[in-house]
C-alpha cells in the first residue's frame, strides 16, 4: 500500500539516510535477555571500525556496568544481525561484516541470566 495524499506521488524526505550522518553510520546494539538496559542502544560508528574494536572498546562503555558483563565468554557469544545468526570476522570492519547503516546487532550470552536469574 502507499500513502493516499492530496499531492500526487507524495513522498516524504528520507530523514535518516546515511549521507546525513557526517561519515558515520548508525548501529543499534542489544544484549538479549538483559532487560536491565531497558532498550537497545543506538550509536554512530565509522563503517571502517573493525568488529573486534567494537567488542573490545565500545561494548564495555555501553554494557560494562552490568555484573554479567565481566563474565562473558566472548568465544561463546552468539551474534545476530537483523535477527539472523551470523559469525562476525573480528578483524574485518563493520561494513565488511555486512553491518550496514541502521543495522541491528544483537548478542546472546548463554548461561548468563541477569540479576538473580531474572533476565534483567
Amino acid at each position: 500500500m502507499s500513502t493516499i495524499a492530496i499531492t500526487p506521488d507524495y513522498h516524504g524526505e528520507m530523514k535518516d539516510s546515511v549521507e546525513n550522518f557526517n561519515g558515520n553510520q548508525v548501529l543499534n546494539i542489544g544484549w538479549d535477555q538483559h532487560m536491565l538496559f531497558a532498550a537497545p542502544i543506538c550509536i554512530p560508528v565509522p563503517p571502517q571500525m573493525p568488529f573486534g574494536a567494537l567488542v573490545k572498546e565500545v561494548l564495555p562503555s555501553l554494557y560494562g556496568a552490568h555484573p554479567d558483563f565481566a563474565k562473558i565468554q566472548w568465544d561463546d557469544v552468539e551474534w545476530l544481525s537483523s535477527g539472523a545468526a551470523f559469525k562476525p570476522d573480528h578483524a574485518k570492519s563493520l561494513a565488511e561484516n555486512g553491518l550496514v547503516h541502521k543495522a541491528v546487532l544483537r548478542f546472546r550470552t548463554p548461561g548468563l541470566t541477569g540479576i538473580k536469574g531474572s533476565y534483567n
Partner: peptide, 29 residues
C-alpha cells in the same frame, strides 16, 4: 534502508504508508 519498530502494530503502520513515515523526526538520529 532499514527501518525499525517496537511491535507488529507499528511495523504494519509503516509498511502501509512508508512514504509518510520515512520523514519521521527521530530525536536520537
Amino acid at each position: 534502508e532499514k527501518f525499525h519498530f517496537c511491535s507488529d502494530g507499528c511495523k504494519d503502520i509503516f509498511c502501509d504508508e512508508p512514504e509518510k513515515y520515512v520523514n519521521a523526526w527521530l530525536p536520537v538520529h
